[in-house]
Amino acid sequence: MDDIEAFWERAQQHAQLATLSSYMGESVLATLRPPAWAFGATPEQADELLGLVLDGSKTATASALWDYEAEGEDLPVAGTLGIVVDSSGTPRALVVTTDVRTVPFDEVDEDHAHAEGEGDRTLAYWRRVHEEFFTEHAGHDKGFASDMPVVLERFRVLHAESSDAD
């Protein structure tokens, strides 16, 4: 059994996902392992942002809608589970998406910027670092635009584990 599968088994028990009843028997939450992914685009970002999730500062994230479209990926929806890994690929947190909305970059509000937990948690800081991120790490060919559609996602940690390095 790999690390992610073992983490998933522990997380299901801790978050009591396997005990949720389903009309057809075992809950689908107990049978389908969610995708594993890391925040950011670099190992340093993955660990920094994961640290903010684990300490409770980060309860939201933002992605370029154009990246989802370029990759042919579905947008997250409320209730989506995800396993967040660190830069080494070690699973560290099981999260559930609680809210998703898409707005133009220049209409992201102070509340969302604060929920992302980064820097001084202000909108000005959020706009500066996210413009830089969306410019440098675009997974599409449209570049950055102040009115580009941004997917704002809120999430909650259902289970977290420390690493040997913590």
Rank of each mutant, 00 (worst) to 15 (best):
M1Y: 00
M1W: 01
D3I: 03
I4Q: 12
A6L: 15
A15M: 12
L20E: 15
S21G: 14
S22T: 03
M24A: 13
G25F: 08
E26C: 05
E26D: 12
E26K: 10
E26L: 14
L29G: 05
A30V: 02
T31C: 07
P35H: 00
W37S: 07
A38R: 08
A38I: 02
F39K: 01
T42K: 03
A46N: 05
E48S: 11
L50Y: 01
L52H: 09
L52M: 11
V53E: 09
V53T: 15
L54G: 05
L54D: 12
S57K: 14
K58V: 08
A60I: 10
A60E: 14
T61S: 15
A62E: 04
S63Y: 00
Y68K: 01
E73A: 12
D74Y: 00
L75V: 07
L75N: 02
P76H: 08
P76W: 09
P76F: 13
G79H: 02
G82H: 09
V85G: 02
V85P: 01
G89F: 11
P91T: 05
R92K: 13
R92V: 08
R92Q: 13
L94F: 03
V96A: 14
V96L: 07
V100P: 13
R101A: 08
F105H: 04
F105S: 08
D106R: 07
E107T: 11
E107F: 07
E110K: 01
H114W: 10
A115G: 02
A115C: 07
E116M: 06
E116W: 02
G119D: 10
T122N: 07
T122G: 09
L123Y: 06
A124T: 13
R127H: 12
R128Y: 05
V129T: 14
H130W: 06
F133Y: 15
F133S: 08
F133P: 05
T135A: 10
T135P: 06
H137A: 06
H137C: 03
A138C: 07
H140L: 10
G143F: 03
G143R: 02
S146H: 12
S146N: 13
D147P: 02
D147I: 05
P149W: 07
V150P: 11
E153Y: 01
R154G: 04
F155M: 12
V157P: 10
L158A: 08
E161M: 05
S162C: 03
S162H: 14
D164H: 02
A165Y: 10
D166M: 09
